[in-house]
Design a protein around this nucleic acid. Structure first.
Lengths: 365, 365
DNA sequence: CTGAAAGCGCTTACAG
DNA sequence: CTGAAAGCGCTTACAG
């Protein structure tokens, strides 16, 4: 009664107002908008509205379309949709991390993914292996994928390409590390402060010879932590023995090796501050192999909480960065930038906090 | 000289054979095929060939297009390409895992990603939290993304939806776990054998009261490992005390709790076989908290290698599943299925192996 | 070796 | 509240 094309339940509607094949579409995985149009008699425009602006559609039409969609197995193609609109319509974001095997990044991924899924975004993941060349490849792939934006702890040093992309208007959120001279949304941890707290804690426990095993020298976090380390010495009026500062590559292997070296010095440190979680784990390996008693023979405070810290003996005292939170914030920040491209870049600083366990030798708290 | 449209280097070609804007496209992130056509004078068809079948293009044309592409920042859109062909053209695969925070799955992700990147596939990642409902959501999202295929450790129990998709022709590769009654590519570990080896090892070391802390009872791996556990007892002619079999949820917390319970039994086990990596870590937590000496007071063999095993004290004896390899194989299998949809499904069985360290109390090897 | 036309599955104005 | 038409950026036959 409403319109000419009102679909009529079960009737044998073989009127020939077109040359369209009248067979009702059946259930199949790759049902398309055209199939649904055929199955319902409702136009593509309206069907599109059903899935995107449902309140603009009459209830009965809405229900018909939804029912039939289920029947024939129709699911809108995000790919086709993505081809349309400019940025913001793609509903997909990219995340490039150095290595998912590092639990620090695994936590970030989880944070990002939770928010992305929640907001209806798909997540494309790439591992860059801390390699600028590979990072560029990932970046290009993500561009080809037409992502709405990218989350990225920038690989070491200054990458001109990243800069170019940012300046070209690609939505990028930096996490964990800075890239200087770039005004970009960033989620960072206050590394200087974290290191300062860690080292001060050891100083208060009476240590003066505190080694620092750093990660890759060229990334910003390493440098900031070194700054915090030095600051703690300065403020407490203790002389720094720079032979106690050793640099590695942020991996457990170098953590183990450097710890061993430190312990075999003629005058070894009485405490070690490890620059990240992998290095901390490496230090434990060295302790185990050498049979060194912690904290009796050497105390330890690590940067980054270690997952399953309670499985280690002694349990490590660490600076916790709220890694999962960094991931969540990054995704939230990216998505709000996508929705509001003109807003000015925001830097979110997350406060690190000390978690005192046994490896530092503190008596209480 | 060749054709009418031969682009002429720097000349002021303002002949008016069309109403097209003659301004040469500049560098910009979202340069399109149309821009490149304008910049080179080469047709879209040929440009497409440059990126997909370069040997069908004259060298000079090839170079021109590539140079100009770089100049204006053109990158082909995978999204537009994906809209085309049937399955196999999308160059994107999906991976659904229960939780990236579990290093077992992180390793799988790494394996999958390495192969995917290598073969030019993008990877969309989803966490299902071992939840069938959420798994379905992920599955639907991946369908909407038009992925060429999906890698998936099926969440507990029988999910009719997964079955439907497989039967509907979606390329799926199962990893880690089986779903019965389904003929699908699978990459599995021989769990029964692994458990058998682990428990036999403990028996040979003289243990008779060996507890089994299992993961989620409803997933296939748990059941198979239980079978291997029982088989070892049977073959060695040792009676089974079923009060030593305890079931948890595969997480560290339950591992810790169940270990504690076991150790507080009137007649505690002399050895424990833990059903996965998280449970093993949980057991270590319990050991630390209770001050239990391993392997002196209780021996341990775990299923799954634990990352950074060397940081634990004592280092755990485990059954290694070659997790990274599972990820790689899964991606390879999926991609070859994509390329050859009609081949019959393959099940790859990966052999678990025992890694003897200190937690079992073995004297050597 | 190259190009014009149609089409992939949607959304977006525009008109009603 | 609904539909016809154009278009998103490519690829795919088809013709030359």
């Amino acid at each position: 009664m409403n319109s000419l094309k009102e679909p009529n339940g079960g009737g044998d509607n073989n009127s020939s107002n077109s040359t369209i094949d009248e067979t009702t579409p059946k259930f199949q995985l790759k049902s398309t908008l055209k199939d649904l149009e055929k199955a319902t008699g409702v136009s593509k425009s309206t069907i599109s509205r059903v899935f995107n602006e449902p309140d603009k559609v009459k209830t009965s039409t809405l229900q018909l379309v939804k029912r039939k969609a289920k029947e024939i197995g129709y699911i809108p193609s995000r790919v086709a949709r993505r081809l349309q609109g400019g940025i913001g319509n793609a509903k997909v974001i990219g995340l490039i991390i150095p290595d998912i095997l590092n639990p620090f990044f695994a936590e970030i991924v989880r944070g990002v993914e939770d928010i992305a899924m929640d907001k209806g975004y798909s997540l494309i993941l790439n591992n860059s292996d801390e390699n600028v060349e590979r990072q560029r490849l990932c970046l290009d792939t993500l561009r080809m994928e037409g992502v709405d934006g990218i989350i990225l702890p920038p690989a070491e040093g200054e990458d001109e390409y990243v800069k170019e992309l940012v300046e070209g208007g690609l939505n990028i959120v930096f996490i964990d590390r800075k890239m200087y001279n770039l005004s970009v949304d960033s989620i960072l941890s206050d590394n200087e402060k974290g290191a300062y707290i860690a080292v001060s804690h050891l100083i208060k426990l009476g240590h003066k010879r505190i080694a620092y095993i750093s990660g890759i020298p060229s990334i910003s976090t390493t440098q900031e932590r070194l700054r915090g380390y030095k600051k703690a010495f300065k403020e407490h009026g203790i002389d720094l023995d720079i032979s106690l500062i050793v640099m590695g590559d942020s991996k457990q292997k170098s953590g183990e090796e450097l710890t061993t070296e430190l312990l075999e010095m003629p005058e070894p440190p009485t405490a070690i501050f490890t620059g990240n979680n992998m290095i901390t784990l490496g230090a434990y390996m060295a302790f185990n192999r050498l049979g060194v008693k912690v904290p009796e023979e050497v105390a330890l405070v690590g940067y980054d909480d270690v997952p399953w810290a309670d499985a280690l003996n002694p349990r490590p005292t660490v600076i916790d960065q709220s890694t999962y939170e960094i991931g969540r914030r990054a995704a939230e920040t990216l998505i709000s930038r996508i929705q509001n491209p003109e807003s000015s870049p925001v830097t979110t600083m997350i406060n690190p906090k000390l978690i005192v366990r046994e490896s530092c030798g503190a008596k209480e708290i």
